Simulated assay, not measured.
Amino acid sequence: MKEHYKGIGHIAIYTVDMDQSIAFYEMIGGSVFKRDGVETPEGLKKLALVEFGGFLLELIEPPAGTLVPSGEGSIPHFAVYVDDLDKTAADLKAAGVISFTAPEKKVLPNTFGGLQNWFFTGPSGEQIELLQML
């Protein structure tokens, strides 16, 4: 299966103030790559990709008035770029991975220029995102 993996996609970090977090990472040498948002039932979840230290951080600000989801720390998941999301997920399932967090992949054609992803959990509850840009 290792032939599918193309490298770390990003490291996700929750923030309570998107602008403050962006200012901090810019101050220490980072730069905003893209900003976006996703509508949720609770409201707009703000997103930003920040280039920093040779990789991307995904800053996530939950909708106004909501807290970081329970059970998740300040780093909720890490993402791995894959060449073919469907094939990678099928190979993982064939290898015995049964911890996918949704029955189907999510396709977000308008987020960060278009992406599809699918999450599963590791043995300690860590969330792993399989990420394919469209």
Rank of each mutant, 00 (worst) to 15 (best):
A79T: 04
G7I: 08
E39V: 00
R35Q: 14
F119L: 13
G9H: 14
G7Q: 04
N117K: 03
G114K: 15
G96A: 05
E72V: 04
V16R: 15
T15V: 12
W118N: 06
D86M: 04
G122N: 05
L49C: 08
G122T: 02
P76A: 02
G73Q: 03
A89L: 09
M18W: 11
K34F: 09
A64N: 03
T88R: 01
A90E: 14
E42L: 04
G96V: 01
P63R: 08
G71C: 01
L47E: 11
F78T: 07
F24V: 04
E72G: 00
D36F: 02
S70P: 07
G54W: 10
L59S: 09
P63T: 00
L49E: 13
L92Q: 05
F55S: 13
E129Y: 12
A95L: 14
A48I: 03
G122D: 09
G30C: 09
A90N: 09
V38G: 03
E51Q: 12
M18G: 11
I128T: 00
A90M: 02
L108A: 02
G73I: 09
G96H: 12
S99D: 10
P123K: 00
L108Y: 07
E129Q: 13
G65T: 06
V32W: 08
D84G: 02
A95F: 12
P103K: 09
A102K: 03
H4N: 09
I128G: 01
Q127F: 12
L134T: 14
K45Y: 08
V97F: 11
Y14A: 05
G73N: 02
T88Y: 01
L49N: 12
M1W: 12
S21K: 03
E39K: 10
G65L: 00
N117T: 15
V68Y: 08
S31T: 05
D84T: 08
L108Q: 03
D83H: 06
A12T: 02
R35T: 12
A79L: 02
Y25L: 07
G9Y: 05
G7V: 06
P76T: 02
D84H: 08
F52S: 12
S21V: 02
G114R: 15
L134E: 15
V50S: 03
D86T: 10
T88E: 04
G96N: 12
K106F: 11
E51F: 03
K46P: 09
T111L: 10
A94Y: 13
P103Q: 11
N110M: 01
Q132V: 01
F78G: 08
F78K: 07
K105A: 05
M27F: 04
E129V: 05
T101M: 13
K6C: 04
T88H: 03
L134Q: 15
G29F: 04
A12G: 00
L85S: 06
S21W: 11
